[in-house]
Design a binder for these strands. Structure first.
Lengths: 199, 199
DNA sequence: GAATGATATGAGCATTCGCTCAGTTTTTAT
DNA sequence: ATAAAAACTGAGCGAATGCTCATATCATTC
């Protein structure tokens, strides 16, 4: 007769695989922020992660997929922060918190963030990167639909413009090594509020 | 006796070389805007320009130098436009014209302009690219030193912030295919003036 | 301890790419 | 016509890179 004991759940082995995947993504991040796209080869990433090149291709079908995974990881961090900003009672307060979240995110790893902003625009979007991009845009849309933040333009245009202002200013600041978050956030806020209210 | 007629100036032969150089730079531009960095190989550029790879390396010591030359060419176009903006009597009018110049420049070849913006930030700056970058920044500095455009921040910070706002908004607009220059310029102007006057 | 599946390895293949150089063609000068 | 200078050519070298695959190790189950 067959065994009737409950089958032990067979997940724990995958922890190792997850660790490998995480190590690869983080290695990709470090290589990118140190040498830019120039040093970003799959062989280099694998070596940096302390695994073989074969393992890399066991988890990522291509170099692009690895880059996408990194973009998704970073964007999810930002989304988590940004979502909590929406809890603020007023649109204005939420905007302030959103801007601070963006500044903090971008200045945490400035070189990496800037590079990924660009890659995101250039890379062929796969399902996952499209999802996080859309999720982030939804946050902007819901923010700029609040009564105290409406402007002349439709929310979609406002969202795109404001995101561009935020990204542009923070990227430039990161590029020239600005590190005082509170000052930068204040100037970005001035620009965004100015855009929203100026007529 | 030797010939005493004035030696004919021996420059005209260089016209051919200049044409080759111009063809190479333009070929680089076209390849970049069609396929991005991916298709941008020296062999491809030479073929597109209708010259041999050897000729390319007769005029440009490296692939990077070719890219730099393209950046310089494009930036000079923008600088020429931007300089005329300074002739306006008021700072405010000059700013409007500067913004329109930037919008026109960026939307003339949107994909190319966006790509070069990024490359400019990533490339090791040679003498020429540094020069045009500095020249463009001087235009901003002199603009934001005008009495009717002063703000809380020092002119240098204002210049950097405003340039970032302009570039960021226009790049994003170009990326999503926006083509109506007057609308875009108006929104950028709102953002910049808002930034300058908001408190 | 034997069998099975999951995970890891790294030599090396195929391709691409930046660049060189020995030689040819074109232009200019006399 | 001739020679020198300027400009151009393109086969191909060496290095790097994305990725495969045959093999090896480890974990789990019975």
């Amino acid at each position: 007769m067959t065994d009737h004991r409950p089958r032990p759940r067979k997940q724990p082995i995958q922890e190792r695989a997850q660790a490998t995947v995480a190590a690869l993504v983080e290695a990709a991040a470090r290589i990118l922020e140190e040498n830019g796209r120039a040093g970003f080869s799959t062989n280099a990433v694998a070596e940096r992660a302390g695994v073989s090149i074969g393992s890399l291709y066991q988890y990522f079908p291509s170099k692009e997929a690895l880059l996408s995974a990194l973009i998704v990881r970073e964007t999810n961090l930002l989304i988590a922060e940004a979502k909590t900003a929406l809890d603020e009672p007023t649109g204005r307060a939420a905007l302030t918190r959103l801007i601070r979240a963006c500044v903090a995110h971008q200045l945490r790893r400035p070189a990496l963030a800037r590079l990924l902003d660009f890659e995101e625009a250039v890379l062929p979007r796969d399902i996952e990167t499209a999802r996080v991009a859309e999720e982030f845009r939804q946050i902007g849309l819901s923010l700029f639909s609040r009564p105290d933040l409406t402007s002349q333009e439709p929310p979609l245009v406002v969202t795109q413009d404001v995101m561009a202002i935020i990204k542009g200013m923070i990227d430039a600041a990161g590029e020239r090594g600005e590190t005082i978050q509170i000052d930068l956030a204040a100037r970005v806020e001035r620009a965004v509020l100015g855009y929203l209210t100026y007529s």
